[in-house]
Amino acid sequence: MPYLQLDVPNHYPAALKQDLAQRMGAQFAALMQTTPDLVNVAFRELGEGGVWNTGDGAPVPAAMLTLAIRRGRSAEQRERLAEALHTTVTEALGLDPVSLTIEFSYHAGDDIYKKRNIDGVLRGALGRDWTPGEAERSLLDTLEEEVRESGPAE
């Protein structure tokens, strides 16, 4: 449900991206009080000249991390996450720390739809708004239980 999309002006090995995605998901879950099974991470490797910051003077290479999340977290919580992800991403990818900007976009929980295999049947449900209790019980497990209680798929 959270979607962390990183636009970068370089290309990286798959193993590095896989490790970085795992670390980003774990950080997101810990700091945003949820579970890592909800987190999706995308690397958009736009290559040289693919991302620019148009500050004073000539544009300079840049990177952008967009975090699409469900509403409900405090500004302090989001700032802690941004700081942690900024450090993790710039160090792992060797980016100039000044080049990376992080932006949040917010969604209601029911703006998101997810499917899971439940008792051998592919079933889907809309998400729910975030609550701090997700750190203890996965939202996907809660949704799975609700789907089971609603009866068999048609």
Results as ranks from 00 to 15, higher is better:
residue 143 L to S: 10
residue 148 R to W: 05
residue 83 E to W: 00
residue 114 K to C: 04
residue 129 D to K: 07
residue 148 R to P: 06
residue 14 A to I: 15
residue 75 A to C: 01
residue 10 N to S: 12
residue 151 G to P: 11
residue 103 E to F: 01
residue 119 D to P: 02
residue 12 Y to A: 02
residue 15 A to Q: 14
residue 126 L to N: 08
residue 95 L to H: 06
residue 66 T to D: 02
residue 81 L to Q: 03
residue 64 M to P: 01
residue 85 L to G: 06
residue 137 R to K: 15
residue 21 A to M: 01
residue 15 A to C: 01
residue 8 V to Y: 01
residue 6 L to P: 01
residue 143 L to Q: 14
residue 55 G to C: 06
residue 102 I to A: 09
residue 63 A to C: 10
residue 124 G to C: 12
residue 88 T to F: 00
residue 62 A to T: 02
residue 33 Q to E: 14
residue 107 H to S: 07
residue 71 R to P: 00
residue 22 Q to T: 08
residue 68 A to P: 00
residue 104 F to K: 01
residue 83 E to Y: 04
residue 31 L to S: 05
residue 23 R to E: 09
residue 98 V to N: 14
residue 97 P to Q: 08
residue 56 D to A: 13
residue 33 Q to Y: 12
residue 76 E to M: 08
residue 117 N to Y: 07
residue 18 Q to L: 12
residue 118 I to K: 03
residue 116 R to W: 11
residue 118 I to E: 01
residue 13 P to M: 03
residue 13 P to F: 03
residue 35 T to E: 12
residue 141 D to H: 12
residue 114 K to Y: 04
residue 151 G to E: 03
residue 120 G to Y: 07
residue 100 L to T: 08
residue 88 T to D: 14
residue 94 G to T: 11
residue 19 D to N: 13
residue 140 L to D: 12
residue 41 V to C: 03
residue 98 V to M: 13
residue 128 R to E: 13
residue 19 D to F: 00
residue 29 A to P: 08
residue 58 A to F: 11
residue 59 P to R: 09
residue 141 D to V: 06
residue 101 T to K: 13
residue 107 H to P: 02
residue 17 K to H: 04
residue 99 S to F: 03
residue 136 E to S: 14
residue 20 L to C: 07
residue 35 T to S: 08
residue 95 L to N: 07
residue 106 Y to K: 00
residue 124 G to F: 05
residue 67 L to E: 05
residue 124 G to W: 07
residue 12 Y to G: 06
residue 12 Y to E: 05
residue 137 R to C: 08
residue 64 M to S: 04
residue 139 L to K: 05
residue 38 L to M: 10
residue 14 A to R: 15
residue 31 L to T: 03
residue 84 A to V: 06
residue 139 L to A: 14
residue 149 E to C: 03
residue 29 A to N: 10
residue 105 S to P: 01
residue 61 P to F: 10
residue 38 L to I: 08
residue 60 V to Y: 10
residue 80 R to G: 02
residue 31 L to F: 08
residue 3 Y to G: 11
residue 81 L to V: 04
residue 111 D to K: 01
residue 113 Y to L: 10
residue 124 G to Y: 11
residue 137 R to F: 09
residue 131 T to W: 09
residue 151 G to Y: 12
residue 147 V to R: 14
residue 145 E to P: 05
residue 28 F to V: 01
residue 73 R to M: 10
residue 46 L to A: 00
residue 138 S to F: 13
residue 120 G to L: 05
residue 113 Y to E: 03
residue 63 A to N: 07
residue 89 V to K: 04
residue 40 N to P: 00
residue 145 E to D: 15
residue 74 S to L: 13
residue 116 R to A: 14
residue 18 Q to H: 12
residue 34 T to L: 04
residue 54 T to V: 12
residue 153 A to G: 03
residue 61 P to T: 07
residue 29 A to D: 11
residue 152 P to Y: 10
residue 74 S to T: 15
residue 19 D to Q: 15
